[in-house]
Computed example of a mutant assay.
Amino acid sequence: MVHKLIPLADWFPADSWPLLACPDCSSGITIDRQRISQFETFESEESHGHEDFEPLWVHGHFHGQVNCGNSRCQLRIVVVGDFKVDYADGRGRIEYLGQQWDEYYKLKFTHPPMAIMSRAEGVPDEVWSLVTDASRLAWVDPAAASGRLRAALESLMDSFKITKLKPNRKPRNLHDRLKDFETKKPDAAQFFLAVKWVGNEGAHGNRGLTSVDVLESAELMEHGFQLLYNKSAQLLQKRAAAINKARRLPRTRTKK
């Protein structure tokens, strides 16, 4: 399964935004180019006077507002990012020396943040606050965002009363706590362990992490939350386990 926000992690045509969901009500977001402004950097503006100028030199930043399309919500979201000019995929907005060119955007920040996962009912507020921090940082600082997801796992372990300190009162590492958690919730623990490994890289300042890495980790964490808190998922798991154990549909007992 590909995370629905992954298209935002790369450059996209300024006139063709990926489909986005409102972080408050999950309805579709509408994009009005009239509400988005862009400007070139000083270096980019200066390049226009160069005798060898070409559109590929044009770059800068954009900022503006996008709106929730739900009339009952109408949330307004601030968007900020980078822009550039590059070859058009087909007919572009710009024609220069017989070549078609287009403007492209790359998102860096939104407020309120675009949620990188859906909240399962029952996820503690302390845990979700850290997930929201990760959503805010996913585009501008993926390493920090991964670190926030890792911190959310620490908070989750606290909520399940997984021992936090060693006998000598020194903190236990997250890996050991997750292995303890695995004895109680093995299915969900596998997903959280995977998120932890990526989060370790963020905590150690790995600048090679990308927004896609964050989104993929968020997808794993969201599934772990579903296994923990989504009752229908738990019931389906139990039903599947019962069928596998019986190697057929279990017979139901009726009261006489």
Rank of each mutant, 00 (worst) to 15 (best):
I94F: 14
H175E: 15
Q234K: 08
L178F: 07
S26Y: 03
L56Y: 14
N244Y: 03
P18Y: 00
M1D: 00
L227C: 05
S27K: 07
K179G: 02
R251L: 15
S37V: 14
I243H: 10
T254D: 13
R172M: 13
V66T: 03
G64N: 08
A240G: 05
V78T: 11
D141A: 09
T110Y: 05
L174C: 05
D158I: 08
E126S: 13
K170Y: 12
T210W: 05
N244K: 11
L220H: 15
P171S: 06
D82I: 05
V198A: 00
S232W: 03
A115H: 00
G202L: 10
H48R: 13
S44D: 04
K255D: 14
D52M: 04
E219H: 14
K255F: 12
N70H: 01
W128H: 13
Y87E: 00
L97V: 13
M117G: 08
E46K: 01
P7C: 10
E126P: 06
H111S: 13
A188L: 10
H50N: 13
R93K: 14
K256M: 15
Q100I: 06
M1T: 14
V80L: 01
A115K: 10
L193C: 00
R76V: 00
R76D: 00
S217R: 00
T183W: 10
P23A: 05
R177W: 09
L227Q: 11
E46I: 13
P112Q: 05
I36R: 13
A218H: 02
T254P: 02
C73Q: 12
R91H: 15
L149M: 11
D158E: 04
P55E: 12
R172S: 08
R248I: 01
E182S: 13
L8T: 07
G90W: 11
L193Q: 15
R172D: 02
L174Y: 01
Q38S: 09
I243K: 10
M117W: 05
L174V: 04
P13Q: 00
W128F: 14
M117A: 15
V127M: 04
W101I: 02
W57I: 08
L178Q: 05
T110F: 02
A88V: 09
A134Q: 08
E43A: 05
G92L: 09
R119C: 13
V198S: 01
M114Q: 10
D180M: 06
W101R: 01
